[in-house]
Nucleic acid binder design. Structure first.
Lengths: 168, 168
DNA sequence: TAATACTTTCAATGTTTTTTGAAATTTCAA
DNA sequence: TTGAAATTTCAAAAAACATTGAAAGTATTA
């Protein structure tokens, strides 16, 4: 396979993949494009490569920066801004985990706390099932929270090297 | 908080939560509803509780059954079918992980395999970055694949009890 | 077997999300 | 300062996705 074709393939698949995970297709594609480009790209480069509008490009780059996945680069002698993505995939994964934890897991745990102390007779089957389900989710959520915190601080070696052995 | 209100809250939040993870809102809500109901519900029960149409209900129940999260129950003496969800959250999580791995991670790894042997001079900076990025993702993906396989087979105790200690 | 209860399908419709592009704003070199 | 280059905004348009409901299909029982 030629490089150009492989790049296209990667970008389009990364985009499709993203949509299954609640990530906007264009955002995932821009990320993919920056991941596989050695040098930083300008907004115009990205627009041209992906055939998308200026506004769309701008919004999604911003979003990627908010997620901590892309950096704005100022090249000396250039008026334009350039953009580049972190290439170390382990760092990328940790960053995504960190953000999703903050945006989704933490609020969910807060909600479960409130729902846990529902009024009513605990002997009532419906109250019981509700409370038990909510508590069960909270318990696992808290554990996931702790585990992910540790993962976020860990080195890749830890994950790739030792995890499997420890679990067996 | 009253049970009715808490249920509503849980269902609606679970639905919103789902949309952030590429899961259709209604599907997540039906799942939530079945999770917190001690007894199985019929299609009509679900339609009424969530104010959704027959077709929508039917399609999303089916999807939940495909995901292995909901079971069809035949109650003796009843003509209708009833539905119930697995209440053990650890089992639910493992089932979701198993399915998403099959549907998303496995195909992604297959793709990366193909992209890895792109033609071209490895000294070319662009070829080099492409190959390195793809290989990096593949390496981490394979590790995740193995780790998740172990997780799928594990008991909850393992996760809740020992994981943290091992990681420290 | 026929009548009835229940389930499934899917074209049409509605809703949400994404994208566009032109106008407004900001930046910076001269 | 000024004004050209670059960036940002956002209302409107397009695209993607979800939902409806009536008709077709199936299973059950009298």
């Amino acid at each position: 396979m030629k490089l150009t074709e492989a790049k296209q393939q990667f970008i389009s698949s990364w985009g499709a993949f993203g949509t299954h995970w609640g990530i906007n297709r264009t955002m995932a594609q821009i990320h993919a494009l920056l991941l596989i480009n050695a040098d930083p790209l300008s907004q115009d480069d990205i627009m041209e490569e992906l055939n998308i509008s200026r506004g769309n490009t701008n919004m999604n780059i911003r979003e990627l920066i908010n997620w901590g996945l892309v950096d704005r680069i100022i090249l000396t002698g250039e008026r334009k801004e350039f953009f580049t993505a972190e290439k170390d995939i382990w760092k990328v994964v940790k960053q995504i985990v960190k953000e999703r934890k903050k945006r989704e897991l933490d609020p969910m745990l807060k909600l479960l706390d409130q729902l846990e102390d529902v009024e009513g007779d605990k002997r009532d089957k419906n109250v019981k099932t509700f409370v038990e389900t909510v508590s069960g989710i909270k318990k696992l959520g808290l554990q996931a929270d702790r585990t992910l915190d540790i993962m976020i601080k860990a080195e890749e070696n830890w994950f790739v090297g030792n995890l499997v052995k420890l679990f067996k």
